[in-house]
């Protein structure tokens, strides 16, 4: 027997969004399949890799582990919200400058986790960066370039 679909209303990247779907549908599936925001990637689908990271009410979460019913009334921000039409975010710039991305699957999650860190600590040391990115797995670039990217982003942010 099918359960009833429900109406979910939330703010997504500064836009009011309404969707009608099953309450336990994963946020990542709503973002990618229903709303065609494919910047958020799915890696493991079980909260190990961090590729699907988004912000809900300003907190970093794995969108593969959030049922859409828990998104009702919240403010969601994804990687698509980082760059404007004219300018990249400073973290994105730093990842490009330092070759912090290779295949790119982990990159949106890495950038969101970096952003979550830099918002609470604009000048993290290497250990703090490592700890804060521990939930984000990369299988190709290697982590050194990602660490360099975050360090440069930290400098750029403090300069402004």
């Amino acid at each position: 027997m099918n359960t009833q679909k429900i109406k979910i209303q939330f703010t997504l990247n500064n836009q009011e969004t309404i969707i009608t779907t099953y309450p336990m549908k994963r946020l990542i599936d709503v973002l990618r399949d229903d709303l065609h925001l494919t910047g958020t990637k799915e890696g493991c689908g079980e909260g190990e890799c961090g590729a699907c990271a988004v912000f809900i009410n300003g907190e970093l979460v794995n969108s593969c582990l959030v049922p859409i019913i828990q998104v009702d009334g919240t403010i969601v921000s994804t990687i698509e919200n980082f760059a404007s039409d004219f300018e990249l975010d400073r973290i994105q710039e730093s990842f490009i400058n330092n070759n912090g991305a290779q295949c790119g699957i982990c990159t949106p999650g890495m950038i969101l986790a970096s952003s979550a860190l830099l918002m609470k600590n604009a000048n993290p040391n290497e250990q703090e960066i490592r700890t804060n990115l521990a939930g984000n797995l990369c299988r190709c670039t290697g982590y050194n370039k990602i660490l360099d990217s975050v360090k440069e982003a930290s400098k750029l942010i403090r300069k402004k």
């Binding site: 909260g47 990271a53 794995n62 959030v66 939930g135």
Partner: peptide, 9 residues
């Protein structure tokens, strides 16, 4: 316990 994204949830 898990990562920061898990700890937030």
């Amino acid at each position: 316990t898990g990562s920061i994204a898990i700890q937030n949830r």
